[in-house]
Amino acid sequence: MYKVVVPGDFISTEVNRAGDGTYVEDGNVYALKYGVVDDRGTIKVVALSGKYMPVNGDVVIGKIVEISFPYWIVDIASPYEARLRKSEFGRGENIDFGNMCEYLDIDDLIVAKVMNVDVMMRIDLALKNEFKMDGVGRLIEVSPTKVPRIIGRSGSMIRLLKDKSNCFIFVAKNGRIWIKGSSADMDIASQTVMKIANEAHTSGLTDRVALFLDSFKSEKGEG
């Protein structure tokens, strides 16, 4: 069973095991966030809500909000905007002030990797190989704190979801989820993702999700 803590709750006296979401004061470990305690390895508090904070190497889904030569300004569902330099398209391309929008226009969605975050919270992105989302499929947004749960331990949950819903599902670190498949399948997949997000703090979730997905299948068979 997961233990829910609130900021300032005493967790432990093992100061050298204190990890993310905790702080140490007078030889005690206290919770820094409202969340559940993860006691495996270091003592962590996994928050139940909160904004995405970019970390180098994260793969995110972003939306172009502004074109400002030589950058595209990208919204990555974080308090900070990221930027994508035109050189990401390669040196061969002749991108200038006028034709930037032919490569990526405002409101376009892209899959990108966080290359660098500096102290001033300037965020540089790099394009992934298949970065264009071309308006295919659906995008749903959940709290980035639920992402580890949607993926599951060593990807068990996401594998289950992909197999049973027949969808292509891509979960980005910033909580944006891209689903591609037939309309009915996407309905099932997005409902399931929302269910996982809402029950992320409970145990035995993978089994319940499996049952939930099977219930759709039996409905279809009867109808």
């Binding site: 300032g8 966030k33 409202y34 928050a47 909160g50 904004k51």
Partner: peptide
């Protein structure tokens, strides 16, 4: 504030 997931030392 706690519900918003904001890091706080205490309530």
């Amino acid at each position: 504030l706690a519900d918003a997931g904001i890091p706080m030392r205490d309530l």
